[in-house]
Write a protein that binds this DNA or RNA. Structure first.
Length: 292
DNA sequence: ATCCAGGCTCCTG
DNA sequence: CAGGAGCATGGA
């Protein structure tokens, strides 16, 4: 059993509300108050059960025998997933002086960005989510995960992990059509999978770059534009100032919050967001939350 | 039916 | 360099 201390006033309710938002999400499994997450270390499967206590979260490995090193990886993953290491106070100080963020930070107190710690998965999700609505995006992702079937059975239920780059490359064009992926997106997924396999792209490399450099590196990949790059920097790398400014969800949330009759322009958003400097990823996430 | 979804690339003038 | 088509499908 592993145990991780939670930050003061951790809001598990808002976390679960976010995790529950799609029935097609099968890269983890919710059962009551527990989260099940399947990890693969090469071919070795470890199924983890995560439970929240008052001051800590517990991780129990219910299938498989982890080494000390693997336990460390799992703890690191979970800490990043729920963004446990961020001090929210500076964000709330900024928010108190900002008319857009103030009500949101009161409504969603102690909400942390829910991250996507695996780089390949985060990139794939950003590609899948481009242009189409979220419901359809989640369906596509579910079909992809089921097709690759990186899974184990435990107590009569099936638990899935996100596919590896090699598995993504193994799916042929005809099959991708059946999964409802466009030709372009298949090309982009393959580009990203190859970059990871060839070790031209890694989370560690991106972490050693500045925000602007990391953004440029991501955008150099075919299929990753400004929105996707900033989405990945925010959700995977944990950069608190990454800002997917063209995001339609962001636009709709701002329209709703400010009771505008149409969506704001990019230049308006750029202006308002000056006040959020250093915390634009958090501002975005809280705005998204207002749409749930 | 038509338009828009957590965009991006490529082609045109 | 701005502007527009095309992509896949489903929900409003």
């Amino acid at each position: 059993m592993m145990k991780i201390d939670l930050p003061k006033d951790f809001n598990a309710h808002l976390l679960f509300q976010y995790l529950r938002r799609s029935n097609d999400e099968i890269s983890f499994t919710l059962e009551g108050e527990s989260i099940f997450k399947l990890f693969f270390f090469d071919q070795k499967a470890l199924l983890c059960k995560i439970e929240f206590k008052k001051q800590s979260l517990n991780i129990e490995v219910v299938v498989g025998q982890p080494t000390a090193e693997e336990e460390k990886c799992i703890c690191k993953y979970v800490s990043e997933w729920f963004d446990l290491d961020t001090d929210l106070e500076p964000f709330y100080r900024i928010a108190e002086k900002d008319n857009i963020l103030k009500p949101l930070t009161r409504q969603f107190r102690n909400l942390r960005i829910i991250r996507s710690p695996d780089l390949f998965e985060a990139l794939c999700w950003s590609i899948i989510g481009q242009q189409i609505n979220l419901t359809f995006a989640y369906q596509c992702k579910r079909r992809l995960i089921e097709q690759c079937n990186q899974s184990i059975n435990y107590e009569g239920k099936k638990y899935y992990a996100f596919p590896t780059p090699a598995q993504i490359l193994n799916i042929d064009d005809r099959l991708y059509r059946e999964l409802k992926f466009s030709r372009q997106k298949v090309k982009y997924l393959r580009t990203v999978a190859e970059a990871i396999i060839d070790k031209n792209l890694s989370k560690k490399d991106l972490q050693n770059l500045s925000l602007a450099q990391a953004e440029a590196r991501l955008i150099s990949l075919q299929g990753i534009g400004q929105w996707s790059a900033n989405y990945v920097l925010m959700r995977c790398l944990g950069n608190k100032d990454a800002f997917p400014i063209a995001d339609v969800g962001l636009h709709n949330a701002l329209k709703q919050q400010l009771k505008l009759d149409q969506k704001p322009t990019i230049s308006e958003i750029r202006e308002w967001s000056q006040a959020w400097k250093g915390w634009r990823a958090y501002a975005t996430f809280y705005l998204w939350q207002s749409l749930l």
